[in-house]
Design a protein around this nucleic acid. Structure first.
Lengths: 318, 318
DNA sequence: ACTGATCGATGAGCTAGGCTGATCGATGAT
DNA sequence: ATCATCGATCAGCCTAGCTCATCGATCAGT
């Protein structure tokens, strides 16, 4: 059976609007006879008369009207999908950016996602990244970008945006002696067993997560690795371990058997900072657009002064 | 800009399945070189590489994969719409049957509608018909069929199916003296003012709805016409009028200020019966299918023995 | 490393069919 | 009765859809 040509559909839909072969031909940029032929071909193909036409009057048949009602949305969906893809191709953009995240997704970020979709036609496929493997998915090309804790000094990676630094808190079990205090001093970490992320993260990154020593030089124990935040909190609640978390995470993952305390006495700069990271060799325009949007959304908020787009300097690691 | 051809889309989708130009060509019934050309043309049209291909490996590009993901459902929608319409055209059926109804729609009827859609691919556009104009919408061609009260002895109309006869009840205001009784005798109608449907129904039909006289010959008053059931019930509740209704309607439209009583003493055959009515000159197969389905759904229920498909004999009218 | 097999790209060449312009016949207005 | 409008149809041109044959690249096996 002859395939139905898009042209025939387009012609029928236009004719349904105009109810006039001449004007239809004009709108379609072809001759009137072509319109006649296209409609006739479609009718032959469908085996029904779709348009009742005399030299004085053009009207859809009952069947033709229902056919138009059905086909028009389907046809428009198809053409708009193609047009959208074409537009994206023209801009070198992608349908969906695959973005991974650590911890929590700030509201400013979801807003940036919304605007990215609205203003650039690029959607987001969001996925959580295992705690201890911040870079591997991006490096492997499975993700286009990741919002992960800095530092990120991999040579292949670019830090496109730096989120405002956040205080780091210490999560301890509610019944733990430390939990009674308002805050805890860094040096107290020396006596504790701090949880560290388990994964294939580089060494300098692990060290920045859980310092090897306190500022005074006392070694910090870390005998247990975790893969997810929930895992960590459960272990903290059990009481044998403590965990360093950033403030948004502490707010979100609140549970009764865990308390989060400010940590005093870090040297300066010992805050937790997330960054939007991507592979330098795969920087698509949409990524830069996302970084720009994040920049706008976080404007005014306290934020690292490092300009976006340059590789991050490795954080001092102990 | 060149239009995108369905063929190109179809080719890409097939290629996305097969990941092999030769097999794709085979499935499409064309040469391998054609597949190569079609894909190349689509890529030229879209301005992006959609398929990564060496002589040993065929894979969709990132963009190509997303494009396929988007286009495939849109394309399949369009083709299935066309195929469905074609199938319907082949059977001479229509997308939706426009059916009107009076009173209420029995569950068996909705079941028949469901099956009509499932088994014959024909949907239903349902609309309520003004109480007193059972035939005009069908006669005017605005509806394909109507489920209305019989008799229907218009020469242009066919009664395709007769619903089981239903008792007729008398609706009276709850505080009306008659409401205290368990039932009311026909002859009592002589003293009441019975509501009649207002519309362009033929005379024999109006007479069948509200008899002019009781069996004994006493004239029945009917000074007020109504257009909808709600209108009628409101007037009944007000107390000046009473209304004859069929049982399903009485059950459904129950309200506290109206009571429905059985009426005793009709001659036989004085029940209310609905019929599926259509214009004899516009009997489409789907209508006969619907009648057959109704026949099945009501099988076993008490029902008029008149075979479907023959014009209804006019009911004796007083 | 050589050989052969497999696979996609490319170019030449054929022709179906997409498209136009001219014309005809039907219809309705004046 | 005349004229204007409109859709169908036909003849004919030429684009572009399609195939066949061939080439170059890649990989397995020896």
């Amino acid at each position: 059976m002859n395939p139905v040509h898009v042209q025939q559909i387009e012609c029928l839909l236009t004719l349904a609007d105009e109810l006039h072969f001449g004007r239809t031909a004009e709108r379609l940029g072809c001759s009137q006879s072509r319109v006649s032929q296209l409609v006739a071909a479609l009718e032959r193909r469908m085996g029904v008369r779709l348009v009742d036409r005399t030299s004085r009057r053009v009207a859809l048949t009952r069947f033709g009207g229902q056919f138009v009602d059905e086909v028009r949305p389907a046809y428009e969906t198809l053409t708009s999908v193609i047009a959208g893809a074409h537009e994206r191709a023209r801009r070198g953009a992608l349908r969906r950016l695959r973005v991974g995240f650590h911890g929590s997704v700030y509201e400013e970020v979801t807003e940036a996602f919304r605007r990215l979709r609205a203003e650039h036609g690029v959607g987001i496929a969001l996925s959580e990244i295992p705690l201890g493997s911040p870079f591997s998915a991006v490096l492997a090309g499975e993700l286009d970008a990741a919002m992960v804790e800095l530092p990120a000094s991999e040579p292949e990676l670019t830090v496109g945006f730096r989120f405002p630094p956040q205080d780091r808190l210490l999560a301890v079990a509610s019944w733990h002696p430390l939990a009674r205090a308002e805050a805890v001093h860094v040096e107290a970490l020396a006596g504790l067993d701090v949880l560290h992320p388990r994964g294939d993260a580089p060494d300098y990154w692990r060290a920045a997560r859980v310092p090897r020593t306190t500022p005074a030089g006392a070694p910090i124990r870390s005998t247990m690795g975790i893969s997810t935040v929930q895992e960590g909190l459960a272990l903290v609640a059990a009481g044998e371990h403590v965990q360093l978390v950033c403030r948004p995470l502490a707010d979100r993952a609140a549970r009764g058997d865990v308390r989060c305390l400010p940590v005093e006495g870090w040297g300066e700069g010992h805050s937790s900072q997330l960054g939007l990271v991507w592979r330098a060799d795969r920087a698509v325009p949409a990524l830069r657009a996302l970084a720009a949007l994040l920049d706008e959304e976080f404007a005014g908020a306290p934020r690292s002064p490092a300009p976006p787009g340059v590789p991050a300097a490795p954080r001092a690691s102990g």
